[in-house]
Write a protein that binds this DNA or RNA. Sequence first.
DNA 1: TATTGTTATACTCTATAACTATA
DNA 2: TATAGTTATAGAGTATAACAATA
Lengths: 153, 153
Amino acid sequence: MLTNEQISNLHTHLGYWLRVVSNAVSQNFARKVRAEGVTVAEWVFLRMLFDAESIGPSQLAENMGMTRGAISKLADRLIEKSLIEREENPDDKRAHTLSLTNAGRALVPRLARLADENDAEFFDKLPHEERLRLERILKSIVSQRDLKNIPIG
Amino acid sequence: MLTNEQISNLHTHLGYWLRVVSNAVSQNFARKVRAEGVTVAEWVFLRMLFDAESIGPSQLAENMGMTRGAISKLADRLIEKSLIEREENPDDKRAHTLSLTNAGRALVPRLARLADENDAEFFDKLPHEERLRLERILKSIVSQRDLKNIPIG
DNA sequence: TATTGTTATACTCTATAACTATA
DNA sequence: TATAGTTATAGAGTATAACAATA
């Protein structure tokens, strides 16, 4: 017989199915938050500022797994939307501090609710035990591969 | 007491963990195929042409869950790389047919091997049973939500 | 010199829509 | 007029690197 090389099909990979579901969840969420005028990356950004006492672009870039350049652009957009403010640090004049405006702080709970809704849409129909299994398996891969980046988009 | 509104944290959502893992898998794969000079979208494109007897941009757009415009650009790039060819259909002069060149056909098995490797890197360390569970849960969400788009990027 | 941020460039994918040619 | 493809434009994210100001 001739070479019987196996060319695996797209759907034979677990990564494929993971991406199908993950992209659907993310796109659905993106649509929801777009109605509130923000992107998924902006939601993550705002949610982090909500918890942070005070945080600079570099720290945020580290936390979000983005470059400082990307954070700058994101911050510009959020300032444009009056959701955050940028201040100089008096102690170290190189450093900036980013913080939520009142409007930004008011928006976060609304976005958090959308995140809850979105998750429920996709996963609430799973039997409780399956949901726990899925979470456990995903977290085991995260810790095994030491994944630390916040996923955007 | 004051309002005890719960602002859910990023990591409380299953969709968050799904995205962490999915993005890591995809980015790892993107890095691998980039070494072969293609993107993930181009891999999907080539893999589909590998099976198709003859296929046009519209059909491919449908199958890949992309717009025809996006397919056109993708096809331009792949033609530039001499991996596919575009022909006019003699029966219907509006229609085009896309097909692999010899170089493109030769590349697909190499990319398929990378996809296999990538999947193995992330999932082979899971107990066999967990892997089956993960696949079953993901597919149940796919069928429940009737997801049909091939995930790119 | 090293660090903090910003800015610039280029590339990929997305979305929408205008446009051409053919049916 | 409807359909097949292409092209144009704009937005969002990624990556890399140049750059200014400060430490």
